[in-house]
Design a protein around this nucleic acid. Structure first.
Lengths: 334, 334
DNA sequence: TTGTAAGCGTTATCAT
DNA sequence: ATGATAACGCTTACAA
């Protein structure tokens, strides 16, 4: 069955294609009568606007692409699930379509298989980059071609529009909280040090430790559940630790296993504090205390920024760095 | 900066646009010399094919859309993460782009925000529906418009191309395994009964129990971690249970919590067997035994089927129901 | 209020 | 082996 075009609809109700076009885009100058006729014919024929044709003319497609990096191949985490949920749902409120596409920052230009191709063709009006890559060449592309975008993550470059947690605050908040709860021998398990977010979290944490007399150890490069598991066992063997502060609730589950395998209890023998507040964390045993982020607000901010630029164009003077505070959610692991 | 078109490239090297088009699509009749020239000009100008224009001409875009249903709003689970990872990665091998889009089977036609719009515009060559919905109207759309697609999930209708686990086998395998391990008081926690996959798993499970003298209880409607948690506590209060068989490793984590909160141990007091083999399951405490599916093969099958139809058209006589066996992975929870 | 014609970037059909 | 020209479905001048 062939799809109905604007011309089919026009013929069906004896008007020109332009009139149909006007109705679709609800231009002001159409009589109510013809409008009715046209709508009827559209429904009758199951007509749907062809975004391809619309986009080819350089018009808005109302599509925003979310790029999830495929650096580690294992690209989607529980964190992504929650973020995407809010992204999808808020985009709908803003009358935008969202698609998720994998993309590799390293060779997006040659690779026809890379989701970035969608941008080059004008299929999408804007983009959200999940995960900030150092000196991401895609950012240059966006800038060069004046495409609205925002990166989610700690901005390395203040000229890049970004939405992120206040990562210093994450480390500081968590550290203060643990000190406040009376823990004074703490291990921080955190991701790769090359990321600014990692560095800031570390700095915040150290600031919180400063002057408290607490003993602390920082272990970087812990970016998978598996590494978190192994490292936690190692740490428990070598150090006398009262609490783990783990960057990422998901990874914290590995730490739970490590602790239990050492025959210790949570929180009686060792406490665990996570980061993120993923839904699943409430069902760990015991439910994990965590440095929570407001996913909904974060997602809203990303979409609002990009849609704003799509609708009103880029403005030189506009604010483009957004940092959000975090909040401690105390459950049973501390 | 304006994007380079085929005409820009053509002018740059003094050939016609058609010749450039030939080079892009590597048609046979082009001399090596011009081919070289054209490639050079393309690189020089940073030329990338415009999928929009290509698609408008009715040609292949090499895009496959994966639809994740937004029935429960919380659409993406850990299961999806793993499946998507393999879908993305195998699609790349097949030289296809994949995008994920949310879509609601109920009102995909009116809702401009629904990812289904991508299909209607011919942006994508084919589709994969994750999660099988009863009498999904989108399936009718695909059939009517002759669009290649496959649904992942137990086929309710044998005319619908589908890829799924052998769900009877899932229940049977798991049940047999538990019996074999000596458990004779078993609770099965499983999703909504309206789904055929649920029914088949139940049937398989009951078949495995049949004649063994085992006592078993089946609880349906357990489709979230939270429900699994509450139900497990309830069950432990009311019944004398030796093992839980939980549909979904992710939900099984809730059962772990329920068991521990009752002061029991896994597997000494109660065993737990999951389904899926999600990566995280290895880091539960104790690591969960599970009825495993071969995600990679499943993903491959989906892509191969859809790409096959895209390339060779639909064939009436072709096989279109694919069922895959499962395998027990024994870890420490049983 | 409505219609006509040109063009967006590509590929297909003819020619040469 | 290469090139001119017409589509594809839509929007946007510009007319009427």
């Amino acid at each position: 069955m062939k799809k109905a075009t604007i011309i089919d609809v026009a013929n069906a109700c004896g008007v020109s294609m332009k009139t149909v076009s006007r109705v679709i885009n609800n231009s002001p100058n159409v009589s109510e009568a013809t409008k009715k006729k046209v709508f009827a014919a559209m429904k009758e024929q199951g007509y749907q606007v062809n975004i391809l044709a619309k986009g080819l003319k350089g018009n808005r497609t109302n599509i925003i692409v979310v790029f999830a990096d495929r650096h580690h191949e294992e690209h989607l985490s529980i964190w992504h699930n929650i973020m995407l949920k809010h992204l999808f749902s808020y985009a709908k409120d803003r009358n935008m379509k969202i698609v998720l596409s994998p993309s590799n920052s390293e060779k997006f230009e040659e690779d026809e298989t890379d989701g970035f191709y969608l941008m080059a063709s004008g299929i999408a009006d804007g983009a959200i980059l999940l995960e900030n890559i150092l000196n991401d060449p895609r950012v240059d592309y966006f800038e060069k071609h004046n495409i609205p975008y925002v990166v989610f993550g700690e901005p390395e470059n203040p000229d890049v529009p970004s939405v992120s947690l206040d990562n210093f605050d994450v480390g500081y908040n968590g550290g203060r909280y643990l000190i406040g709860r009376g823990y004074s021998k703490i291990a921080l398990l955190i991701g790769e040090q090359k990321f600014l977010s990692t560095q800031l979290r570390m700095e915040g944490f150290e600031k919180a430790m400063y002057g408290t007399g607490a003993q602390y150890h920082i272990f970087t490069g812990i970016d998978t559940v598996e590494k978190a598991y192994h490292k936690s066992k190692e740490v428990l063997e070598e150090y006398d630790i009262q609490a783990f502060f783990v960057s990422g609730d998901e990874r914290a589950l590995g730490v739970y296993r490590g602790i239990y395998e050492k025959g210790m209890r949570i929180p009686e023998d060792v406490a665990v504090l996570g980061i993120d507040n993923i839904t699943l964390g409430e069902f760990y045993y015991p439910p994990i205390s965590t440095v929570a982020q407001d996913f909904k607000q974060l997602a809203k901010c990303c979409i609002d920024f990009v849609v704003g630029e799509i609708e009103e164009g880029k403005k030189e003077d506009a604010r483009k760095i957004f940092k959000f505070p975090t909040e401690i959610i105390e459950r049973k692991s501390t």
